[in-house]
């Protein structure tokens, strides 16, 4: 039922009956979802619905109170972001986790800088790989040497997505990647996200823009006050149904 016709194989991510509470507050309950390679799944819901919390659970920032996470069918326990990264999961945060005064290529390799035999930074390799990726994804930046703060918001988000793409072998999580961007920059970032489909990794994107969700996603998962309302194939639903699911004004 959840399997998209366009994608095949086993899911890169499987969430099974996830529940998360903060003290007495239930942020997420009964949440189950599978994401397949080459698929873009959108996560929608009102403010406070629990979307970011879910992303943080998948990326190892929070431990779920109960429930299990499987990567390519194998149940994993992730208690920090480093473990999630080791499983091939990368996150693009809305508030840009980039070091502003460093170059594009240093950000691309932040925390994972390659070194040569002498233990010194292998800048040539970092620059070459950065330029290759930036060209592939068509992120238009002046050069790999540019300082992040000299770039526009869209270019920065492009760099953040390029970094995630470089390191993610299985799954990329995007938490409102265009929330801070203008119209043209949003279009550019959407283009980059759409191009990720060809890389055979799963993409889970949070967005408040239904236009964007319908443009990019294969399936849409709706959350309301921590509860999973439903999952729809994008082609077989419409905005009215999704809005009704988000607001709960008309149960479907």
């Amino acid at each position: 039922m959840k399997t998209n016709a366009a994608v095949s194989g086993r899911p890169v991510l499987g969430l099974n009956d996830i529940r998360k509470t903060f003290g007495g507050i239930v942020a997420i309950e009964n949440f189950s979802l599978e994401v397949y390679p080459g698929e873009i799944v959108a996560l929608v819901g009102d403010n406070g619905a629990g979307k970011s919390t879910l992303i943080k659970i998948i990326s190892g920032v929070y431990l779920p109170t109960s429930g299990s996470i499987a990567i390519e069918g194998e149940t994993v326990a992730m208690s920090n972001a480093t473990m999630a990264r080791a499983h091939g999961i990368e996150v693009v945060y809305q508030d840009l986790a980039l070091a502003d005064q460093q170059t594009v290529y240093m950000n691309m390799f932040l925390g994972r800088e390659p070194t040569n035999a002498l233990g010194l930074l292998d800048r040539r390799r970092m620059i070459a790989e950065t330029e290759k990726l930036v060209t592939e994804l068509d992120v238009r930046i002046p050069s790999a040497h540019s300082t992040i703060r000299d770039l526009s918001g869209g270019q920065r988000q492009g760099v953040a997505i390029a970094r995630a793409t470089h390191w993610a072998s299985k799954l990329i999580l995007l938490d409102e990647p265009t929330a801070a961007l203008g119209v043209a920059e949003t279009a550019k970032v959407e283009e980059i996200v759409a191009s990720l489909k060809t890389r055979n990794i799963g993409v889970l994107i949070i967005s408040h823009s239904l236009d964007q969700v319908f443009k990019l996603s294969d399936r849409i998962c709706v959350l309301r006050r921590g509860k999973q309302i439903g999952v729809r194939e994008t082609k077989k639903t419409d905005k009215n149904e999704i809005i009704a699911m988000i607001t709960g004004l008309q149960q479907s």
Binding site: A81, R85, L96, A97, L98, A99, D100, L110, G111, R112
Partner: peptide
């Protein structure tokens, strides 16, 4: 950016 550094491991 201490947070960026931290989430980068």
């Amino acid at each position: 950016n201490a947070r960026a550094a931290s989430v980068s491991g």
